[in-house]
Design a binder for these strands. Structure first.
Lengths: 234, 234
DNA sequence: AAGCTTAAAATTGTCGACAATCGGAAAGGC
DNA sequence: GCCTTTCCGATTGTCGACAATTTTAAGCTT
């Protein structure tokens, strides 16, 4: 059984831990592209060529194809027949619709959560909030933004409705494509303030207030995105 | 250029209109399986074997695979590695979550629609409503159910938020997997009544009332599904 | 020089064969 | 007689090569 071609990926220590195939590979493709979008390394309109991805990246072409299909269904890329995948470009109307959908679903989650949140949930939110504030104070804007998204995602998860959680997570995932939030520092600041007040409202079991704060925050974000989208329509 | 193997699908008149490949083929797989589920020809737990689908059905194996992947992402089938696809079996908790998500999103849509609906939209809803009532009167339960789903889908579409429309459509699509509604006739009847009252409320621009009616309808449906799910858990 | 036609390069889409994996059935041991 | 182990059939997952399509670029005509 010791042999010349020793099932490469299993034996060689220099070989990477991950395989180039399987459901994991598809997942990796999705994650890498998503991260690239979140870091603005991929801009709206950029083409995603299968061969480049399967070469330079971490999977074979089939896994890349499946990953792109999933991203298309999630709405992060658009897949035109015989033309391949490109990063989506949202219209102002779509931006409004995305934020409205978040307002509705996160609002419902906050109302539920005000009644049902336990100490463990509170601790998780407070922890994220503290790290978000720290990242903001240290000027780590990217990390602050990431933690802000984690805050909203955690609210959904704690509310316990997996369907709505999945939906909102999709909406959050395409947030980096809505705009850079050039005024990053300021918007992060509003985020920290709003999240703090949201947690306070939740602890008072004041679901309506938590929802109202979150709605105002999302509307402010929407205004920023719309300003960017109309200012630089290229 | 006239030859022995004449690009089969293009020339032969006996050949089917559709090709066995392409994005259309994948779409066809999704549609056929969805319809089979809606007609209870596929029950929760049934296995979906790729070869059987690509043989008896209308696409090559690759299209079948992609179609199954999409159905899995939509939540209609579950895809276990190396085991293939099976029709999902929802837990009572998941049933609650699905209906709650519909209540939230359809409610928001109805509130918007009360303000913005024009005559064309009214006509579309009334038309569906009339056909639904006719189907119920004639005892065509399956068609009545289909039109009931169309009513809810059309409400979302008229409200104009594509994101929420897509989400609710997914939730509606898995309704046949929640239960048969053995009391089909009666639940269809409640549906017709509730939809009629919903349209009436919309025409009065009473969004809150429309939402309330719809919520009660969905909660009644949820109770039915839960009764079935707990009664016959096999 | 501008515009059209045609060829070639790049990219996606498709197919069949093979490899890996799982479930169950048969054989063997206690 | 029951449990464990091994093998086999069935099914999914993977890969490379080829076909179809689109885009790019050059060449030719006007």
């Amino acid at each position: 059984m010791d042999q010349i071609v020793p099932r490469t990926a299993d034996v060689l220590p220099s070989a990477p831990e991950w395989r180039k195939s399987g459901p994991e590979a598809e997942e990796r493709v999705v994650r890498l592209i998503t991260e690239a979008i979140q870091q603005n390394r991929l801009q709206p309109g950029d083409r995603l060529v299968e061969r480049e991805l399967s070469d330079g990246a971490v999977a074979n072409r089939q896994a890349v194809r499946q990953g792109l299909a999933r991203l298309a269904q999630a709405g992060l890329v658009v897949l035109t027949p015989n033309r391949g995948a490109t990063v989506v470009q949202y219209s102002p109307e779509t931006i409004r619709q995305i934020m409205q959908a978040r307002i509705v679903n996160e609002g419902a989650a906050l109302r539920d959560l005000a009644e049902t949140m336990d100490d463990a949930g509170r601790d998780r939110l407070v922890d994220i909030l503290r790290r978000e504030a720290a990242a903001y104070d240290d000027g780590r804007v990217t990390e602050a933004r990431h933690l802000s998204r984690a805050f909203h995602a955690t609210v959904m998860e704690l509310a316990g409705n997996e369907m709505m959680t999945r939906f909102v997570n999709e909406l959050i995932a395409c947030q980096p494509l809505l705009g850079n939030s050039r005024t990053g520092k300021q918007s992060s600041f509003s985020g920290v303030i709003a999240h703090t007040r949201t947690v306070a409202a939740l602890l008072r079991k004041d679901g309506a207030e938590a929802e109202a704060i979150n709605t105002q925050l999302l509307l402010a974000l929407e205004r920023e995105f719309l300003r960017e989208a109309t200012a630089e329509p290229g």
